[in-house]
């Protein structure tokens, strides 16, 4: 058990390091897209460690407690995440729903802490984040329902292995409509444009994060990086057939993350109600159509 917990913590730490480095690389890529030079690839590490070392202010115990709960929940979620079929802390317990719902503990902690700061701008940011969540989550879960039904297991590594078996395509190909929906939902989850209304830089004073500084902000940065790691890895395992070894995983992860970043950077920003209407129009319809085609009619490529 101790070994498993240590592996889990290793996955969380590795995921954080990998994603933070990749985040830096992506800042570089985006800079080139905009004909800038861009920061160095390890800039994100510098930012986080600078914040952690600074003296900050606190708005009461719930402000701090929420941050601890947020980071703790996310670390806990990351500990369940399979990287390859072999690097997995708790075999057969990496249930899909654990990721969705344990992630929510972290989100709740952050929302609580932000509201506890007493700043209305933070509460507005939280409201927008939750509204965005109710929009992107449902189409995504319908697509995952289809996947679980086809694969016969809700274990994330099990779904990845199912795609690696001979005769099965990756779900990216097997469920093309569902894949499109999942890409859109992933952009919502990661808070990429056009669904980045809850952060909305230059509009609502950086949303939920407005009151943070110092170690609290640093910890929330760590939390954000691990969240991105969880969401993108989930996507890799569910749609891109997982990974046999760690290099395949890194490549697939990089492609997904960089691709989304490029798409995101040529988009504008939706208003919050437009986000909801958007997700309940085409993505939801496509997800339902995909589910009907795959489950009731059995047409899977």
């Amino acid at each position: 058990m101790i070994i498993s917990l240590l592996i889990g913590l290793g996955v969380a730490l590795g995921g954080f390091t990998f994603q933070t480095a990749l985040g830096g690389v992506n800042r570089k890529i985006v800079a080139r897209l905009q004909k800038r030079v861009g920061p160095r690839w390890y800039q994100e590490f510098i930012d986080i460690f600078k914040l952690l070392s600074k003296r900050s202010v606190s708005h009461g115990w719930i402000f701090d407690f929420g941050v601890i709960m947020a980071l703790g929940g996310i670390i806990g979620t990351a500990m369940f995440m399979p990287v390859t079929s072999n690097i997995l802390a708790f075999p057969s317990f990496d249930n899909f729903f654990i990721f969705v719902y344990l992630l929510a503990v972290g989100m709740l902690g952050m929302a609580m802490s932000a509201s506890g700061s007493g700043n209305p701008l933070a509460s507005i940011g939280v409201m927008r984040a939750l509204t965005t969540m109710v929009a992107y989550e449902i189409p995504f879960m319908i697509v995952v329902l289809t996947i679980i039904k086809l694969a016969g297991t809700s274990s994330v590594s099990g779904i990845a292995e199912f795609q690696q078996m001979a005769g099965n395509n990756w779900f990216m190909i097997a469920l093309p409509l569902g894949f499109v929906v999942a890409v859109l939902s992933l952009m919502g989850m990661l808070g990429k444009k056009p669904f980045e209304t809850y952060i909305a830089p230059a509009e609502i004073a950086s949303g939920p994060m407005v009151e943070y500084g110092g170690k609290q902000l640093g910890m929330l940065f760590i939390m954000h990086e691990i969240t991105v790691f969880i969401e993108v890895s989930l996507f890799v395992h569910l749609f891109l057939g997982g990974a046999e070894n760690i290099w395949m995983f890194a490549i697939k992860y990089f492609l997904v993350y960089a691709g989304l970043n490029l798409v995101s950077n040529v988009n504008g920003r939706f208003k919050i109600d437009q986000v909801v209407v958007f997700f309940y129009k085409w993505p939801l319809a496509m997800a339902v159509v995909q589910a009907i085609i795959a489950i009731y009619l059995g047409w899977v490529i």
Partner: peptide, 29 residues
């Protein structure tokens, strides 16, 4: 259990860093 381990790690990170200065709720941006 895993959640508690995660919270414990986060708590250790939190208390091992510099103590924050306490400010009122009206002292906001």
């Amino acid at each position: 259990l895993v959640f508690m381990v995660g919270v414990f790690v986060a708590f250790v990170i939190f208390i091992s860093l510099k103590k924050s200065k306490k400010v009122g709720l009206m002292d906001t941006y």
